[in-house]
Design a protein around this nucleic acid. Structure first.
Lengths: 159, 159
DNA sequence: CCCATATCGTTATGATCATAACGATATGGG
DNA sequence: CCCATATCGTTATGATCATAACGATATGGG
């Protein structure tokens, strides 16, 4: 006989409704924490006209250099439809440029404009500040631990 | 004289471009981790017609009982405009009901329908499963540490 | 009592997400 | 060589977010 799902024994072997708390769920905590981190960054870069998502695209391009739109999306965790729109908006603001790849007609190569490269270089220190603010309630050791654990959670994500 | 921002000394006192990595930024990690957690939950509840955000609203209501739409939003980290739309969709699917508060004409009291309460009770075990999957790459002690550190990051958020 | 101030819910706008479906192009194995 | 299969980018759809602006209602101090 299988264990009952509705019984809600105080600490049953199959975790049941009794010991459930929304605030203890990793997904809910991650959403709240991301909201906070995102807000901290946005406050600093909004007047430069960028969002956190847009910034992550610019930062990845700054780190890795010019690459295809699709690959850029994978490296920042955006679906093709999503990275497309973000690149589009950054193009409209003359921060990025695109050209079709000479060796593969399917690919769209994304690169900085002069302004784009200059802007992201000026914004990176603001992100570093923002990260420090987000982590401010933890001591340095705890900060390292958190970053390391999150890194392992995400490990097999991108490249 | 102030330290230069563009110099990029290998490990300058003011963290500069040289030691910046997108993958080391708390905000970026949180976004990727949330994406993963959200996907794990969505896969389990999508065929019941709910999203992770909708589920969090239902779960909070299940924990705390009937309350005003605005307060419900605060307790799940949603702005008034946002919680409004989510409640609207759940109402349209007859999972929630609303009535105006007898003692305060501004307030809209949100409560379950029979179906709604029954559905969330059936879905909570799926979220517990989903949380376990999200945390699967960490050992139990590390899982506790992560939850505790995230909790402190978010501490002064709701309620 | 009255009114400045706060709270609640709504509307509008624009960006971010996931998903499904699609055409165009590459590629590799037979 | 050819064709099944994969990859790339696009379009469309619907949900989730933050923000600004607004009317309606409560509230508390003078």
């Amino acid at each position: 006989m299988s264990t009952e799902k509705t019984a809600a024994t105080p600490n049953g072997a199959d975790a049941a409704l009794s010991d459930y708390t929304l605030d203890g769920q990793i997904g809910f905590l991650l959403r709240c924490a991301y909201q906070r981190a995102s807000g901290n960054l946005l406050r600093r870069i909004a007047d430069h006209g960028l969002t956190p998502a847009q910034f992550s695209v610019m930062a990845r391009l700054y780190e890795r250099g010019s690459m295809s739109q699709n690959r850029l999306g994978r490296l920042v965790g955006m679906e093709p439809a999503n990275i497309r729109d973000v690149v589009q908006r950054l193009k409209r603001r003359s921060l990025l440029e695109t050209r079709s790849a000479p060796d593969d007609a399917r690919r769209l190569v994304v690169d900085f404009s002069e302004q784009g490269r200059s802007l992201v270089a000026r914004l990176i220190p603001l992100e570093i500040e923002s990260s420090a603010q987000t982590l401010a309630s933890l001591n340095p050791e705890e900060q390292q631990t958190l970053l390391q654990l999150l890194g392992r959670l995400v490990e097999t994500d991108d490249r």
